[in-house]
Design a protein around this nucleic acid. Structure first.
Lengths: 237, 237
DNA sequence: AACGTTATGTACGCTAGCGTGCCGACGAGT
DNA sequence: ACTCGTCGGCACGCTAGCGTACATAACGTT
C-alpha cells in the first residue's frame, strides 16, 4: 500500500454511506471550486461552511508568534474541513489555506449540524476521522521536532501527491519553507539532495515525483504510519 | 489569570453537571490511586477504563522511531484520559504515563460509553475538551519546533505546577529531558539559566517554583495561550 | 562511616539549521 | 527582444542543540 487514496472520484468520508444518508447529504450540499491560495478560514473564525474536498486540498496551519507558520495537517479527498462542528464547536482551530485548486462539496455549517442528527453512519465515520487527525497531530509534533528537513520534505511531497493525484506539483521552495517551518534555503538544499538521488525533478515552481517508492524510502516512517492509521480506522471497503 | 485551575477539589470536567448526570456518573465510577511512573496505556492498546484525575496527572507521550519520546499533552484535574471513547474509539492513541501520583475517578470503558448516551451535558463538555486538546496538540507541534529549550521548560513547569497544585515538583533533569525530547544536559543548562534568574530552585530531583509570574515571562506564549483557550472553551462557572 | 546509586555539572567536537544577502537564471508580459 | 519580477543556488558566520563522556555531589543503605 503506497497511498491512502484509492478511490479518486469522490470524497472518501462519504463513500459507502447508506442510501438514505447519502441522499440527505447530497441534497444539502453543493459543489464549489476552490482556487489556489485562498484563505478559507482564519484561526478562531466562525465556520460558515464545511468542505469535503474532491480533487482540491487544504492545508491546516498553525500561526505562532505572529509571524511563524507550520503546517500540521492537510485535508484532501480523504478528509474534510470543519470537523470541529462534529464536536459541536463552530470555531476554526487553525488557518485553512487552499493548497491545491479543485472542487469540493460544501455544506452550510448549520445544515451540517442538523444533518448529523439524522445520519449516524456519517457521524460515526467523521468521529473516526477526528481520531485519525488527533493522532496525526501528535505524530506531527514529534516528526517536526525529531526529523530532518530532507525526510520531512519527502514525506510532505508524498502526502501532497496523494491528494493532488498527479506526479506534477506546483510548489515553490518558498511555499514549502512555510509549510515545514524552515528557511527557503533549507528547502533548496533538501530538494537538491532528493533530486540528486533521482527521486524528484523540479524547475521554477514545479516539482515532479520521479520515484515514489524511493521517496517513501527517503521519508521518515511518519508517512507510512499515517497511511496505515488511515487505512485501519477509515477503510474504504 | 495565571492558572487554568481554580477549583482544587474535583475534576473540572465534572463540575456544574446537572444533578441527574452527576449522580449517574458517580454511581458508575470509583476512586483509585495512581502511583508515579505507572504506564496506564500503551499506544494502540484498548481502553478498559477512563480516568478523571483529581489530584493526580498523566502525561500523554508520542513514541517515535522506537526510542524517541515526546510529551504532547497532559491530563490533570482539568482533563481526562480516554477522550477517544467519546468519539466511539476504544484505542489509546498515545502512551499514558502517571506523572503525578494521586487519586482519580475511574470508570469502566463500556459503562462510560453507555453513560454518555444519557448525559448530554457531560457529553457536550467532553467534546469541547477534545477540541481543546486538538488545538493544544497543534500548538505543541509548533512550540516544540520553534521555541527554545529554556522557554519550553518554563512552560512545562507551569503546566505541571497547575496540575500538581504545589510549588514543589519532584522531577529529575533526566525525566524532563524525556518530556521535552531533548538531552539531559540540555535541561541542565536551561534549568541553570532559570535558577540564575531567580525563577526556580532545585536540588536532586526537586524543583521549586519561586517566581511564578517571572516564569510565565520566561516561557513562550504557548502557556498563556493554552490557559486562555481552556478558560474560553471550558469555563468553570 | 563507608558504600553504592543516582542526580547534576561540565566539557568536547560536531551537526542541522538559522539569518542574511547576493547573484544568476528563467519566463511572462510588453 | 527586452525588462522586470520571481525563483533557485550558494555562501557567510552564527546559534542551538546533539552525542558522548567524565567528574562531582547528594542521598540512602548498611
Amino acid at each position: 500500500m503506497t497511498s491512502i487514496l484509492n478511490v479518486p472520484t469522490a470524497n472518501q468520508l462519504l463513500v459507502e454511506l447508506p442510501e438514505v444518508e447519502r441522499n440527505a447529504f447530497m441534497a444539502a450540499c453543493n459543489t464549489v471550486e476552490l482556487s489556489f491560495g485562498k484563505v478559507l478560514l482564519q484561526p478562531t473564525e466562525t465556520f460558515t461552511h464545511v468542505y469535503f474536498p474532491i480533487d482540491s486540498f487544504i492545508s491546516l496551519i498553525v500561526v505562532i508568534d505572529t509571524d511563524k507558520r507550520l503546517e500540521v495537517a492537510m485535508a484532501g479527498r480523504e478528509g474534510m474541513l470543519g470537523s470541529s462542528l462534529v464536536l459541536g464547536i463552530d470555531e476554526a482551530p487553525l488557518l485553512a489555506l487552499v493548497q491545491g485548486a479543485g472542487s469540493a462539496l460544501r455544506i452550510d455549517a448549520g445544515a451540517f449540524q442538523q444533518l448529523l442528527l439524522s445520519t449516524p453512519v456519517l457521524q460515526q465515520r467523521l468521529k473516526r476521522y477526528i481520531y485519525v487527525v488527533m493522532k496525526q497531530l501528535a505524530t506531527s509534533a514529534a516528526c517536526n521536532h525529531f526529523h530532518r528537513i530532507e525526510e520531512r520534505l519527502a514525506r510532505w511531497l508524498l502526502i501532497t501527491q496523494d491528494r493532488a493525484g498527479t506526479d506534477q506539483l506546483n510548489l515553490t521552495h518558498e511555499f514549502l519553507a512555510m509549510m515545514l517551518g524552515v528557511r527557503r534555503a533549507g528547502i533548496t538544499l533538501a530538494a537538491i539532495a532528493l533530486q540528486a538521488r533521482g527521486l524528484i525533478r523540479y524547475q521554477r515552481g514545479t516539482i515532479t515525483v520521479l520515484d515514489r517508492l524511493g521517496l517513501i524510502e527517503a521519508s521518515c516512517d511518519c508517512y507510512s504510519d499515517d497511511c496505515a492509521l488511515y487505512a485501519k480506522m477509515l477503510p474504504v471497503i
